[in-house]
Simulated scan of single mutants.
Amino acid sequence: MQRNKPTPAAPDPTRETQAPSPEGRRRMQMTDIARLAGVSTSTVSRALSGSTLIPEATRTRIVELARSLNYRVNVGAANLRKRDVQTIGVVILGDSMQAISDPFLLSVVGTVADALDERCMSLLLSRMKEGAPHQLAAIVESGQVAGLVVIGQLTWHERLNQLAKMDVPMAVWGAGLPDAIYATVGSDNLQGGYLATRHLIQRGCRHIAFFGDVNHPEAGLRYQGYVKALQEAGLTPDPRLHQSFLFGDSRIRAVIDQWLDQHLEFDAIFASSDVCAVSILGALSERGIAVPTQVKLVGYDDIALAEHMHPSLSSVRQPYALAGRALVDLLFEAIAGQPRRNVVLPTELIERESSR
């Protein structure tokens, strides 16, 4: 009785292939091309598939290197991959209490969208919950997006470093931490805190409170600037005048009221966000404490609402338009396999009625 021969498995059309190598020599892999070219494996893959996300000079260099090493990509696979992903993932990290509707976040996301639109790209906005860092890599690996713009750091710093080691292309809005291996864009938070506090000192204030979480990467730098300005003026930071809170904490009004109930001596407040400053202004008004005649107030971010408050709010301005463009530029550099770099944007004190 003649047995039927098993049918050979159909070839996978998306699989990379290379010419037969000499006997005894290991076959050249895409990871080898990446190592020799000094770029990531994903960059090599995109370059060999003709992706326009990779600069022409880089594509040419990688293609020529692959050709010299007798490495070829399956034509069918290349044709499949030439359908470039035209979407970028914009992820707001979930351990921050800030809602997506927060004016600061909306400003950053809006400028990122404008910068992507100039490149004929769209964005996929999502909020990532704490405890699910693997989902960040999965978004890229699934082919939904070509890379990530991540807003926030806080407790995600080590996870972001892990993603960078996995060659996940991304750019992060936050502080440029010393051990970060991912690209960051952020304002000069230390200088911003210094400018705000120095301004209040110049207005005659000597008992200046600080509202913000010093353990947060950005707020912590703003606090350092606050301390620097006080020390330069011969003033000693009073721990009783520091009130910690997280950005976007819905309990901020209760925190402010509890702090005010202590009846501490203060003549100014520097709030590490405008949203917090708005809540402080309301709490002071309800207690009959006049701003700026009795207490002067400065916020941070310079959201659109700041100039329309009564009194209008002095604030440290973060350059949102520059932020969006810088984040997109760094992301595309990461996609192209270029060296990581950080961008620190200038801050500017906008003086209004609340501190005059």
Rank of each mutant, 00 (worst) to 15 (best):
L313E: 11
V39C: 02
A229H: 06
V63G: 01
P22E: 00
A277F: 09
A10D: 08
R25D: 15
L264P: 03
E158R: 12
I62W: 00
L36S: 05
T184E: 04
I350K: 05
L230D: 00
S122T: 09
E130F: 14
I256S: 05
T155E: 03
I289G: 15
F245M: 07
V44S: 07
N70H: 02
L221G: 12
A171N: 04
G324S: 03
A175K: 14
A66W: 01
L264R: 15
Q318E: 10
S187F: 04
L124V: 06
S285M: 13
L125I: 11
G324H: 02
T41L: 12
D302R: 08
V73S: 14
R72L: 07
E351K: 11
L221W: 03
G38S: 05
F266N: 12
S354E: 13
T236Y: 07
V140N: 09
G176I: 00
R341T: 13
E333C: 07
D302G: 11
G192H: 01
Q2E: 13
V140D: 12
Q162E: 11
S272A: 10
V149E: 10
R25K: 12
I201S: 02
V328H: 13
R81N: 12
R26W: 13
P169A: 11
A19F: 10
S315K: 08
V316E: 06
P169M: 10
Q144E: 05
A171W: 08
S126I: 14
N4E: 15
V145N: 01
D261M: 10
K129M: 07
G110H: 13
R325Y: 08
A164D: 13
I350V: 13
M170P: 05
E56Y: 08
G234N: 06
G299Q: 02
L264D: 04
V344R: 09
S355N: 01
A9R: 11
R61M: 15
L281R: 10
S101P: 04
V298Q: 08
A290Y: 15
Q29A: 03
E23R: 02
Y226V: 02
A19P: 11
L200R: 09
V214D: 04
V316W: 10
F210Q: 05
R59L: 13
Q338F: 02
A304G: 04
Q135G: 07
S49C: 15
E218Y: 14
L53T: 05
V140G: 07
P169W: 02
L163D: 12
Y182D: 03
H242T: 00
P13H: 03
A209L: 01
Q202V: 12
Y300G: 01
T155G: 03
A180E: 04
I54C: 14
K165I: 14
E118P: 13
C205D: 13
Q338H: 13
M97G: 09
R3N: 15
L65A: 05
R81A: 01
N4G: 14
P319D: 06
S49Y: 11
P311S: 12
